[in-house]
Design a protein around this nucleic acid. Sequence first.
DNA 1: TTGAAAGCGATACCAA
DNA 2: TTGGTATCGCTTTCAA
Lengths: 341, 341
Amino acid sequence: MKETTIYDVAKEAGVSIASVSNVINGKGKVSAKKREEIREVMERLNYRPSVIASALMGKRTYTLGLLVPDVANPFFAEIARTVEDRAHQEGYSVIACSTDNKEERIERYIRLLKRKRVDGLIIGTGLGEAGSQALQAEKAVPVVLIARGSDELSAHSVLTDDRAGGAAAARHLLGLGHRRLAVLAEGAQVTSSADRVRGFRAALSEAGVTLAEDDVLICETSVAAGERAAGELLRRAERPTALFCCNDMLAAGALRAAKRSGIRVPGELSVVGFDNTVLAEVTDPALTTIAQPLDGIVDQALELLLAEPEAGAAELRRVVMAPELIVRESTAPPPAAKSQP
Amino acid sequence: MKETTIYDVAKEAGVSIASVSNVINGKGKVSAKKREEIREVMERLNYRPSVIASALMGKRTYTLGLLVPDVANPFFAEIARTVEDRAHQEGYSVIACSTDNKEERIERYIRLLKRKRVDGLIIGTGLGEAGSQALQAEKAVPVVLIARGSDELSAHSVLTDDRAGGAAAARHLLGLGHRRLAVLAEGAQVTSSADRVRGFRAALSEAGVTLAEDDVLICETSVAAGERAAGELLRRAERPTALFCCNDMLAAGALRAAKRSGIRVPGELSVVGFDNTVLAEVTDPALTTIAQPLDGIVDQALELLLAEPEAGAAELRRVVMAPELIVRESTAPPPAAKSQP
DNA sequence: TTGAAAGCGATACCAA
DNA sequence: TTGGTATCGCTTTCAA
């Protein structure tokens, strides 16, 4: 059975396709009577306009692309869900793409999405040289960066204030009495991680506490990597009493490492995560972590992305949203502080 | 700047668009010389054929739809990632849709995906009346069901042997010496959950152990729901020594409930999950759980979905794959059994 | 082998 | 108000 087309409707209703098109789009002039008739026929034939055909005429495809490092990672999974919901409300569907932070994948995806003429790209991953090029090449797609600084690319961006997040973690720990801290970070290409560390460090030094170079360990993004790095840290002679992890997976890993080393959390070691994913409620102890305002971020991002590119408004926006410290069970005063009233 | 079209290429190369089309698709006859020339021009102009236009001519859109209850749920997030990877290998991209198991959302999504002329649908969620109807209506899309029994719908399906999974959990617990068991299940509309319970119960009764009606609690799919239900169970006079949970989120909730009640796991209570998601490695104790062979499932599913619908091969396939018990730290012999050698 | 021309299913302009 | 028709970019006959 073939799809019903606009021609079928027109013929059945005894009008021209132009009129049908007009009632579909609510444009042009159609007499109320004809309009009703056409409506009725569309209904009866169960007619659904082809997105493909109208896209070919230069209209929107109502499809958005979402680039993240890995949709299986709980944080990005939540982003994907949030984006999907908001986009769906506006009539869009979204193609999620996991880049693994690999230039080759990034480039391939961007090309593919362009060929499919997506109406916009929401980018939550680093791009690298190749990615930026692919974006600019040929006809540029509207782009908005989320949860990521605006690399070398000129595009709107909306992101969490990562420095503030790092600082909040630091102040929380400092307030608890910690003075020997360390951090588990992600690689340099993850700019948000770098900013979190910067903020963390800045807040520490404000309090006169310094963080040595080798007190921040770079990890891949996985529980196992966090466990490994934390294990190393905990084996040091002067081990830290508190650990700031740039995401919840690393923090979960740290918790495991502590357990394996027989170090109690939060009694002997405090751990702070970032992102406030499901993981944070599921670990034992539950993670104190920094929450990103995902709904707000996605709202803003879609608004920027879908706004008709008005003639004048060519200025680049950079929206920064405040993170929030969520205190759970993984942080407490350091052991030493306990005995000194 | 406008996209380069097939006309631009043809003009630049001094040939007809038909020839260009032929070299793109490797069809028809084109002299080696012309072919090279055209290739060179395409390269130079950075030409990318429009998926839209070719889709309009009845070719594939190279887009697949994926329906799951919630991509933010770690299990479905992993499915989404697996599907994305395999699909991408074949040149497809995928639109992920979270249905929340709501008929209204399901229907809307199916309609939308059809209007976008996706080449196939991978369905990992119950459909309900509305969904099934929407699928059949008008031109039917190729469909494959994953991780879900084939409802009322006639479509290929590839799924885990849920009964076997439930049975494996039961035998593991039985083998450890447990005799007072209970289960946390999902609602009736989640057929996989029902099958897991069936398998679990069957294996139990084979061993002469019975599971009363009120020993299986129905929960929503969330950590909190699991915690609540498990809490109730643990407050009973004759509390169970082992809990089988139909997914890892519920199991994680059970762990929390146990902790709140001061019940040690696995010392006083064993817990088994299902799905082997990240959650299972992150809880403390780490979850013993049943792993689904995701890669295998997705491989098979895509194969069935993308196979050219050959003339003869109209038979419906139902592929069942074996789950695997992953023993971690959340299971041990029951307290009583310890004292009886 | 090559190319002219007829669609595919919509939109949009312009006459009537 | 209506409807005829060109157009979007590509695939696919079918003649030449």
